[in-house]
């Protein structure tokens, strides 16, 4: 296994009076897709938001490529080369698809080959390029959310449940886009509830429960071991 690009050591996060992350230890190897699995409320989204600085870790250390980013502000973390696709998509409804995309590239100019790849992965974005993003369907909004995160090459992509509530055809196109990223050597930390989606994409896996990492290993190992799946994830995982 390659050296970790991102490391969380004993990370705790409190949100108001709630103690959500209770000492998370997680390694995300450089290159490849790390799946973060677990039941609802296990702390997966909080982990992504804490890495991004959207919620501050109250204790512990987060290291990205050797640099301590625990106390950095969100824009500074983003500028180090980390992008996030949030669970609620977080698109700017009042702006056009084009404006949403351009905003995601701090230089304001999306490379032509990158844009071609995005249009081939998500054709509706080309069709609705000049339209307000608020007019897109739910699946198209998710495409835009993912496309925005990958609009320029980043060193780490944090993606939160991209397949949630989407039609199978759209899930397939999202999976293909993430496979393309993986093929190009990108590092992805992907939160997912859909086990089939996770199996198809993941290289390594960490399973969360009650604010802790309870299992880490290879995705292939977890995919083959029914006992491990039942033990760590119960019956709440969608296997379809």
């Amino acid at each position: 296994m390659s050296e970790p690009l991102l490391t969380l050591e004993g990370v705790h996060t409190h949100i108001a009076q709630y103690h959500i992350l209770q000492g998370v230890n997680l390694d995300v190897p450089k290159g490849g897709v790390t799946m973060l699995l677990g039941r609802n409320g296990a702390g997966k989204t909080t982990t992504l938001r804490t890495i991004m600085g959207l919620w501050q870790a109250s204790q512990g250390k987060i290291t990205f490529d050797g640099q301590d980013i625990t106390r950095l502000s969100t824009p500074d973390i983003s500028r180090l080369g980390i992008s996030i696709v949030p669970e609620n998509m977080g698109i700017f409804s009042g702006l056009t698809v084009e404006e949403n995309m351009r905003l995601a590239v701090l230089s304001g100019k999306i490379a032509d080959d990158r844009l071609d790849w995005i249009f081939s992965a998500f054709p509706p974005l080309r069709t609705f390029w000049k339209y307000p993003a608020g007019n897109l369907s739910g699946g198209q909004k998710q495409m835009l959310s993912v496309a925005r995160a990958v609009a320029e090459e980043r060193r780490l992509y944090l993606i939160d449940e991209p397949s949630k509530g989407l039609a199978p055809a759209i899930v397939s196109s999202l999976a293909k886009a993430i496979k393309d990223l993986k093929r190009d050597g990108a590092t992805v930390l992907l939160v997912e509830q859909n086990f089939s989606f996770a199996k198809a994409l993941g290289d390594t896996v960490s399973v969360m429960d009650d604010g802790h990492i309870v299992h880490s290993g290879s995705m292939a190992e977890l995919a083959q071991d029914q006992n491990l799946q039942t033990r760590f994830m119960g019956l709440s995982m969608e296997t379809a």
Partner: peptide
């Protein structure tokens, strides 16, 4: 201008704008 687009983005969702890398 691009500056105006960032303003509109901040008006809609300042957390998201920060996550993209803009210092709100």
């Amino acid at each position: 201008s691009p500056f105006g687009s960032v303003l509109k983005a901040i008006r809609e969702n300042d957390f998201r704008a920060e996550a993209i890398g803009y210092r709100v």
